[in-house]
Simulated scan of single mutants.
Amino acid sequence: MNLTLWIAAVLLAAIALAAGLTKLFVPQARLAAAKGGGWTADVSVGFLRTLGVLEILAAAGLILPAVTGVAPILVPVTAGCWVLLMIGAMMTHGRRGESALVLLNLAYLALAAFIAWGRFGPESFTA
Rank of each mutant, 00 (worst) to 15 (best):
L54F: 08
R95P: 05
P65S: 06
W82K: 15
E123C: 14
S44G: 14
A112C: 14
T78N: 12
A116I: 04
V26S: 00
F114N: 12
F114E: 09
V26T: 01
L17E: 01
P65V: 05
G97R: 01
Y108F: 12
V70D: 09
G36D: 01
T126E: 15
I7K: 07
G118T: 12
L12M: 12
L106D: 05
G121N: 04
T68C: 10
T78L: 02
A127S: 14
V45T: 13
W6L: 06
Q28T: 06
V26P: 06
A33Q: 05
L12H: 01
W117V: 12
A14Q: 01
A60H: 10
A110C: 12
V53S: 02
A60Q: 12
F120D: 14
N105A: 09
V43G: 01
A113Y: 13
D42C: 02
A127E: 11
G94V: 05
L11A: 15
L3M: 11
A79D: 10
G37L: 07
L21C: 05
L51Y: 00
L111A: 13
L54V: 07
I87G: 04
R96H: 06
I7W: 06
P27T: 07
G20T: 03
I15Y: 10
L12I: 11
G38C: 01
L101W: 08
R96S: 11
T68V: 09
V10W: 15
I63A: 08
I15N: 11
I115R: 05
A89Y: 06
L48R: 14
L51G: 02
G37M: 02
W82G: 08
T40I: 02
M86A: 14
I63C: 01
R30Q: 10
G46S: 11
A33F: 01
G97F: 00
V67R: 13
K35Y: 12
L54Q: 08
I115C: 09
R119E: 08
L51F: 02
L17Q: 07
R95I: 02
G97Q: 03
L111G: 00
V102S: 08
A34I: 03
M90T: 07
A34D: 03
L109R: 01
A58I: 11
I7V: 14
G52F: 06
A8E: 03
L64C: 14
A13R: 06
A110S: 02
M91W: 11
I87V: 14
I15Q: 10
F125K: 10
H93Y: 08
